[in-house]
Design a protein around this nucleic acid. Structure first.
Length: 282
DNA sequence: ATCCAGGAAAACG
DNA sequence: CGTTTTCATGGA
C-alpha cells in the first residue's frame, strides 16, 4: 500500500483533522483506518507517527486534499497572539484545514443549520446514498455526493427520506439556482472574501455562518471566521467580555466578533477559529 | 417534558 | 429598519 512520509517540519494529525467537524463524510474504525469519499474516490488512510498509509488515490491528491503543502508552523505562529489560543495550538498540533469539494461543502452547510455534527453527517450520508453514484471498495458500497443536476431534479418524496427537515427546500432551490457547477465554483473562487461572501449569501439557506464555513473549507479564504454557538461562547468568555448574554446571535454581534477576530488573529483567523473550535469543551 | 445543536427565513412592529 | 418567531430532527 502506498505510503507518505512526513518530515519533522510538517506537523499533521489525521485524527484531529478528520474529527474536528469540518468535513462530514469520514468514518474511523477501531484500527485507526479512516474511510471517506472525496469526489469520485473512496479514500482509505491511516497515520502512524510520521507515516501516512493510504489507498484510493495518488499521493499528490492526498497531499492536496489534506493541505500538506501548507507551512503549518508558519500559519499557527502567525495567529499565536495570546495565552488562550496558544494553548489551543499546543492541544491541536497537526490540525489542518482540508480542501473540500465546493458543491458538496455548500449543501453540507445548508444542511448544518441548527443541528449537531452527528445529525449533519447522517443527512449528508442520506443524500449521497439516495442520489449519489455507487462506488465499490473492499466489498462495501460507498456513494459519491450527487452533482447539482441530480439534486435539482430530485423528487420530493426521495428528498424527504433524507430527513433534512425544513432545509429540504433550501437544498432544492440552491441546486436549481446553480446551472453550472464548475462555472459557479470558478466565479466564487475568483472573488475576494467579502464579495464572495455576499454572492454565497444570495443562495437560499446560506447565511453568514454557512457562507463563512464554505469560504473557509472549500475556497481556502482564511480570513473567514465562522461564528456558531460554541465560537460565540469562547469569544464572549475569553476575548470580548463586553458582549451580552443574549440568547440569539444578532447580525451586529456576528460582525463584531469576526472583525475582532480578523484584527486580533490576522489573515489566518479562520485557521485560528478551527483551533478554538476543536479545543472547545463540550 | 424540556432543551439544545457548526442558523436562516419569514413575520413582525 | 432592527427584532422576534418559526422551522424539522433526534439525542441528552
Amino acid at each position: 500500500m502506498p505510503v507518505l512520509s512526513l518530515s519533522p517540519d510538517e506537523p499533521f494529525s489525521l485524527d484531529l483533522t478528520l474529527s474536528c467537524g469540518q468535513a462530514f463524510r469520514w468514518e474511523r474504525d477501531a484500527d485507526g483506518w479512516w474511510h471517506g469519499v472525496v469526489g469520485d474516490r473512496v479514500i482509505k488512510i491511516r497515520q502512524k507517527n510520521a507515516t501516512l498509509t493510504f489507498e484510493g488515490g495518488p499521493s499528490p491528491f492526498i497531499r492536496h486534499y489534506f493541505s500538506l503543502d501548507t507551512d503549518l508552523d508558519a500559519v499557527t505562529t502567525s495567529f499565536d497572539r495570546d495565552p488562550f489560543i496558544h494553548d489551543a495550538i499546543l492541544k491541536c498540533r497537526g490540525l489542518r484545514l482540508v480542501r473540500q469539494p465546493a458543491w458538496e461543502c455548500l449543501i453540507s452547510y445548508i444542511c448544518a443549520t441548527n443541528s449537531n455534527i452527528p445529525m449533519i453527517k447522517r443527512r449528508i450520508a442520506n443524500i449521497a446514498n439516495t442520489f449519489g453514484k455507487p462506488l465499490e471498495f473492499e466489498e462495501k458500497t460507498y456513494h459519491t455526493f450527487p452533482d447539482h443536476a441530480s439534486l435539482a431534479c430530485a423528487c420530493t418524496p426521495a428528498l424527504s427520506e433524507c430527513k433534512l427537515g425544513y432545509r429540504s427546500p433550501y437544498v432544492l432551490e440552491t441546486a436549481c439556482d446553480i446551472e453550472d457547477e464548475k462555472a459557479w465554483n470558478d466565479s466564487i473562487a475568483a472573488l475576494p472574501y467579502e464579495q464572495a461572501r455576499r454572492e454565497l449569501m444570495r443562495l437560499q439557506g446560506v447565511g453568514p455562518k454557512a457562507a463563512d464555513c464554505i469560504l473557509l473549507f472549500a475556497f481556502q479564504k482564511y480570513e473567514a471566521f465562522p461564528v456558531d454557538v460554541w465560537i460565540r461562547r469562547i469569544m464572549r468568555d475569553h476575548y470580548i467580555k463586553t458582549l451580552n448574554n443574549d440568547s440569539s446571535l444578532t447580525g451586529w454581534e456576528y460582525d463584531t466578533i469576526r472583525r475582532f477576530a480578523e484584527k486580533h488573529f490576522g489573515k489566518y483567523c479562520g485557521y485560528a477559529q478551527e483551533y478554538l473550535y476543536a479545543s472547545r469543551e463540550g
